[in-house]
Simulated scan of single mutants.
Amino acid sequence: MTTETPTERPGEWWPELAPVVRPTTATKPAYRTVDVHTHLSVPAAGALAAPHLRPEYEPRIRYSSAETLAYNREYRASARQTGQFEDADVRLADMDRQGIDVQVLSVPPTEYFYWLDEDEALAACRLQHDRFAEVVAAHPTRFTAVANLPMRHPRLAVEVLREARRDHGFHGFELSADVVGLDLDDPRYDVVWEAAVELGMTAIMHPQGFTHGERFTDYYLVNVMCMPLASTLAVTRMILGGVWRRHPELAMVVVHGGGYLPFYSARTDHAYAVRPELRRHIDRPPSEYLRRLYFDTNVFDPAMVRQLVDRFGADHVLLGTDYPFDMGTVDPLGFLERVELTEHERRLVLGGNAVRLLGIPG
């Protein structure tokens, strides 16, 4: 049985819970700071996709409680949040408060629209990319962007990836942790990984939710637990399915600190040592493939950032906030100032790694 806060309750208390971007508590460094994990909504693409909505393929809708759905509508409808999600000038003001020099723009995960047929999917992606390119062209020193791909149609996804690189100069693409329930270790996606390596495009994994979320509807667990859980499952399947054995140069940033796997991969390594099922597609412990990945800092605990640096190296950790969602890090420089980092490590995490992985011009 689901326990709800009545939706007829006065809504004024909801916006008060949302975090507000205020001037950073940290001293901004002299070098460039880059936020690798931000979202820009493109209403034109949403309007195109809306008549074709397949809610059964949208876990954030299917497994959200009535309270969560009502809150999300209020949150996105407020004038302040609409500006943050869509308006470059609003974003620039927030970036200046945060001490962020460059944002990497990607679509909100609710705007992957993977359920669209090929023609509509292509049109939606092009609208998103054109809008991103417009914002980047207007503010070339403050924004860069990554593509959205029609992943349910892998061959078309490759065409869109090439187009995004050729026509807009994008150096990366965002993707969910599954494609309408299909796992990313499926061999049909090898053409996407091959093209990404060929083009030098970095993948950014950002889940849309969890496809089997029946037990996660209450308490906003569809986001709180399911986001990192979806990444953990997706990355584990990709490793065990041999994706990085077949495509060792595939670069991928996994947001939300990589989910749970970076903090509990020893169990998977143990299973690899004692169980034949894990040895079908790989020839070394899973954690060795995990070390090839990159992780953002949106984990809310400074000790966890330090653990990521200790485990994978400062060159594999990138500043990320999830701006402008309320599950993001509002003061990223202040947060990272609480992490014990050397100046060299700090320079890599705050921007150096993003510049290298996403081809951000000097």
Rank of each mutant, 00 (worst) to 15 (best):
P154I: 05
G241M: 13
R338T: 15
L233R: 03
A251W: 06
Y114G: 00
R356C: 08
V197A: 01
P6G: 11
R306H: 14
H52V: 00
P228H: 14
V160T: 12
G83I: 13
R284E: 09
V21C: 01
R162M: 07
G181N: 06
N353V: 15
R91M: 06
T2G: 08
H171K: 08
A273F: 14
D183G: 04
E111N: 00
R292D: 12
T68E: 03
A196T: 09
Y294Q: 04
V102K: 01
H212N: 07
N298F: 14
Q84H: 13
V197F: 01
P23W: 08
A271G: 10
H153N: 05
Q98C: 09
M1F: 15
Y289P: 01
R306D: 10
E67N: 05
R188Q: 12
K28Y: 11
H37C: 10
P23N: 04
G169A: 11
S65G: 02
V107G: 01
G83T: 11
H139Y: 04
H281N: 09
V135Q: 01
Y75K: 02
V160L: 09
T25V: 14
G241H: 06
R280W: 06
L221V: 02
V253K: 01
L48S: 00
E343N: 03
H153T: 05
L149E: 01
E16R: 09
F210Y: 14
P187I: 15
E8G: 08
R155E: 12
Y189V: 13
D310A: 11
D326Y: 12
Y57E: 10
T7V: 11
T268Q: 11
M225D: 03
G352R: 04
K28V: 15
L293F: 06
Y264C: 10
L184S: 02
Q208V: 14
A66I: 15
D87P: 05
L92I: 15
P23K: 11
A271Y: 12
I204L: 10
L199S: 07
P285E: 08
H247C: 05
G313K: 09
L127I: 00
L261G: 02
R62G: 05
E67D: 08
V299K: 03
D326W: 11
G259M: 07
G11R: 13
H171S: 10
A18W: 13
R32Y: 07
F173K: 00
A66R: 11
